[in-house]
């Protein structure tokens, strides 16, 4: 009697998939890789940055992209005296809500500054790009005061 053929399949214990970020988030991240920042128009015409797939008030699907500026102003901020290990800076820095020029909705990111006194609501900031951009929110390394 001949031996039955034994079926074999290599198995790698891992998340062996990549996740598609879709046409809206994916577009934003792809633009970041090219060092551009885009937002999207909400139902009422407000420009949302980073873009959302659906309008949170009307649930309308959104698709009209708008390029926005790489400078903007601080809407509010938190000064972190003792950065946590996971934080993007090991020196004191600010988390801020930043409204970019041409956008209506502020976005959350970090602001590099020497001291809390240098940061204020209304202060102008500009994006600082990472040395290598890969299509991640961290392609914007931080914002710095203008």
């Amino acid at each position: 009697m001949s031996q039955p053929e034994i079926l074999n399949q290599a198995f790698e214990l891992a998340y062996t998939y990549t996740r598609s970020t879709g046409p809206v988030i994916g577009r934003f991240l792809t633009e970041l890789k090219k060092r551009n920042i885009v937002g999207i128009k909400a139902s009422d015409g407000r420009v949302i940055v980073p873009p959302m797939e659906y309008d949170p008030d009307t649930a309308q699907e959104l698709s009209e992209f708008v390029e926005v500026g790489q400078e903007g102003e601080i809407v509010s901020f938190a000064w972190v005296k003792e950065p946590r290990e996971a934080h993007p800076s090991d020196k004191p820095f600010a988390w801020a809500l930043i409204r970019l020029d041409g956008a209506d909705v502020p976005m959350v990111h970090c602001v590099a500054a020497g001291s809390e006194e240098q940061v204020s609501t209304g202060a102008r900031v500009k994006a600082v790009w990472a040395e290598e951009t890969i299509g991640f929110i961290t392609d914007i390394r931080c914002f710095e005061l203008v």
Partner: peptide, 20 residues
């Protein structure tokens, strides 16, 4: 996509709310 990769913590978000 927009917040978790920054590791922005919930205390800091509340601090921004308070400052507003």
């Amino acid at each position: 996509y927009y917040l978790a990769p920054l590791w922005v913590d919930t205390v800091s978000l509340a601090a921004m709310q308070a400052r507003m």
